Amino acid sequence: MIEATNIHKYYDELHVLKGVNLSISKGEIVSIVGASGAGKTTLLQILGTLDRPDTENGSSLIINGQDVLLLKDKALSKFRNQQLGFIFQFHQLLPEFTALENVCIPAYIAGKPKAETETEAKKLLEYLGLSHRINHKPTALSGGEQQRVAVARSLINKPAVIFADEPSGNLDTASAENLHKLFFKLRDEMGQTFVIVTHNEELANMADRKLVMSDGRILI
Results as ranks from 00 to 15, higher is better:
residue 181 K to T: 13
residue 194 F to E: 00
residue 124 L to A: 05
residue 56 E to W: 05
residue 165 D to I: 02
residue 190 M to L: 15
residue 54 D to T: 13
residue 143 G to F: 13
residue 198 T to E: 05
residue 135 N to C: 05
residue 73 D to H: 11
residue 127 Y to K: 14
residue 3 E to L: 09
residue 12 D to V: 03
residue 22 L to G: 05
residue 190 M to K: 13
residue 97 F to E: 06
residue 124 L to W: 02
residue 64 N to S: 13
residue 145 E to Y: 01
residue 143 G to C: 14
residue 91 H to Q: 02
residue 156 I to V: 14
residue 157 N to G: 10
residue 99 A to G: 15
residue 85 G to C: 14
residue 147 Q to W: 08
residue 61 L to V: 09
residue 75 A to N: 05
residue 183 F to E: 06
residue 80 R to E: 04
residue 133 R to Y: 14
residue 89 Q to D: 07
residue 203 L to D: 04
residue 198 T to K: 00
residue 75 A to K: 07
residue 48 G to I: 04
residue 185 K to T: 01
residue 73 D to C: 07
residue 191 G to I: 06
residue 26 K to A: 15
residue 184 F to N: 02
residue 220 I to P: 00
residue 181 K to L: 05
residue 19 G to K: 08
residue 36 S to V: 14
residue 166 E to Y: 10
residue 62 I to P: 12
residue 183 F to C: 08
residue 122 K to A: 09
residue 209 R to Y: 11
residue 152 A to G: 03
residue 81 N to I: 11
residue 94 L to K: 04
residue 21 N to R: 08
residue 201 E to C: 09
residue 38 A to Q: 10
residue 43 L to R: 01
residue 134 I to M: 11
residue 54 D to C: 12
residue 63 I to W: 00
residue 191 G to N: 05
residue 83 Q to H: 14
residue 24 I to M: 05
residue 92 Q to N: 14
residue 139 T to V: 14
residue 2 I to F: 01
residue 79 F to G: 03
residue 75 A to S: 15
residue 155 L to I: 08
residue 58 G to Y: 06
